[in-house]
């Protein structure tokens, strides 16, 4: 059972899932089967950006950039409390665990888009761990509850000092051998969930922009505009339901707390102007217009 103070984080996660779902769907609608190339590459790239950023965060803080740190103290990431994880092995070099419930999957399943989960899981996590370990780790994803007959996802992440470059070892490992570590907390509160989800959303969008432009040229970005508009429509309809269960009105204040871009885009991570505009025009304004209709 989750607490009331965790609800905003859950909604932010769902708003992120909505953005992912609609960007991917829109690309498939416009580009057909070939769009899968962009979706997979962009998901991988988004993971690489996140993994790279987390590594830099830890090094800046003087922490060891290994798997134990990655799973116990997320800095740029915010972990939705609805993730239920059963740990099997956990230390600096190994993180082996089963994901029993996953809110992204649950949302996609509920809205008939569970197939989009496969390309996300297969690419994103791999990108994260490979960038985080500077290309020498492994992120293995051997079971996936998207498939019939599976009831959990199994991840195995490995980062071995013997595979790392000699100059990277001191920054990542406390020794050659790793002792089993205490399991990460089931719920790791984040300082600023909105900021974390906004960052993740922007990483996702910029990755999609990079990959779609590389494959089809700049004109193809219109698929992303459509995706963002559709995401905003779906977000309002979804949050309307949430306001009912929370017994709160659906208004600007609610959106400011429960969405990460809101009705007015604050460019807090200094995105290039064209990306900021893309979000403002297609997502924030649609959200605002829809809000007026719902009120």
């Amino acid at each position: 059972m989750n607490r009331i103070d965790q609800v905003a984080t859950q909604n932010l996660q769902d708003c992120w899932s909505i953005v992912y779902k609609n960007l991917a769907k829109s690309i498939l609608q416009v580009r057909g089967k070939d769009g899968e190339v962009v979706i997979r590459r962009a998901n991988h790239l988004c993971g690489e950006k996140m993994g790279q950023m987390e590594r830099e965060n830890y090094l800046k803080e003087g922490k060891l950039a290994n798997l134990q740190t990655y799973f116990t103290t997320p800095v740029s990431r915010c972990i939705d409390p609805r993730f239920r994880i059963q740990w099997q092995l956990f230390n600096e070099q190994e993180a082996v665990f089963d994901v029993i419930t996953c809110p992204i999957y649950d949302y996609l399943l509920k809205t008939g888009a569970k197939d989009l989960m496969i390309s996300f899981c297969e690419e994103y996590h791999h990108g994260c761990i490979m960038a985080y370990t500077k290309g020498v780790g492994q992120c293995t994803f051997s079971e996936n509850f998207v498939y019939m007959g599976e009831n959990s996802c199994r991840f195995g992440c490995y980062y071995r000092p013997s595979n790392a470059k000699a100059e990277d070892r001191p920054a990542s490992f406390s020794g050659e051998r790793a002792q089993e570590a205490p399991r990460p907390e089931a719920y790791i509160p984040c300082e600023n969930p909105q900021k974390a989800f906004a960052l993740w959303g922007e990483m996702l969008l910029t990755s999609y922009m990079q990959e779609i432009t590389a494959r089809y040229g700049e004109a193809a970005i219109c698929a992303l505009s459509e995706g963002l508009k559709a995401a905003a429509h779906e977000t309002i309809a979804y949050l309307k339901q949430r306001t009912i269960s929370l017994r709160k009105p659906l208004d600007e204040a609610f959106l400011a707390e429960h969405t990460f871009w809101g009705t007015q885009f604050a460019n807090q991570f200094d995105l290039p102007e064209e990306v900021a505009k893309l979000i403002e025009i297609n997502y924030c304004r649609t959200l605002k217009a829809d809000l007026a209709r719902y009120q």
Binding site: Q88, L89, V96, E122, T140, F141, E143, R154, G156
Partner: peptide, 10 residues
């Protein structure tokens, strides 16, 4: 992508 998530040696 090659995933060896469960292993008899684990």
């Amino acid at each position: 992508q090659i995933n060896t998530g469960r292993e008899l040696v684990n």
